[in-house]
Write a protein that binds this DNA or RNA. Structure first.
Lengths: 107, 107
DNA sequence: TCTATAGTTCAATATTTCCGAACTATTGAT
DNA sequence: ATCAATAGTTCGGAAATATTGAACTATAGA
């Protein structure tokens, strides 16, 4: 049903962004999107890790934080990072987080 | 009782750091410490905002995330940012967060 | 049209966070 | 020495969040 709401980044306070990034599953999703570009929910966060409904909720959190944009393509939902926008609003934050996350990846 | 535990930053995963920063009260504490240097708990986070016990817990979270170091001085506990260490472990993260937080401050 | 797939929503449970109350330790005054 | 005040911690329960399975929606393909 719902076509998703993607907030204007000016309306997203910094703690919301950091909170969204401050979860290992979501951070992994963000990393995957950074590495691979647009991905389906399933590919961005394999279901072994969390239940399908939890995963869906993680994407909701990421969207609400302005970190991810999701569009529907057939029966799939493709998400991608809002990199430039985010970098304009909060310069360096996403970049440094992604750089820091690189050496943590355990897959 | 407890003399505080301050983890080695190598033992602190990135999501823990981001989670600690992803709360408006804690972020404000961090900003205050960045601006003023070493501060007592009370000065870093005035009690009007949250209960004393909550504030105490926020500091515990910040310590566990390796963001803050606390030492006892008389009946006061002085906390300060672990800036250099944090910057060595996660370059740019704290700096960009502090820079981004500046224009958000509402006091 | 029937079945499978991808994801959402909902309601219940599990986990976290927040708070007040009781406690510890230190200081300063009497 | 004792008493009162201050700064913070710890604890247990209440409030808020997160996670999950089950039921649902929508699309695609046979």
């Amino acid at each position: 049903m719902s076509q998703f709401v993607h907030p204007n980044l000016n309306d997203v306070p910094l703690p919301i962004v950091l909170h969204a990034l401050g979860d290992s599953v979501r951070l992994q999703i963000v990393q995957n999107l950074a590495r691979e570009g647009e991905l389906s929910c399933a590919k961005a966060a394999p279901e072994q890790i969390v239940a399908k409904s939890t995963r869906s909720n993680h994407f909701k959190v990421l969207r609400a934080a302005g970190i991810v944009r999701t569009r529907k393509a057939g029966r799939i939902y493709l998400s991608s990072l809002r990199r430039e926008e985010l970098d304009e609003r909060y310069p360096g934050v996403l970049d440094s987080v992604l750089a820091a996350a690189v050496d943590q990846a355990a897959d």
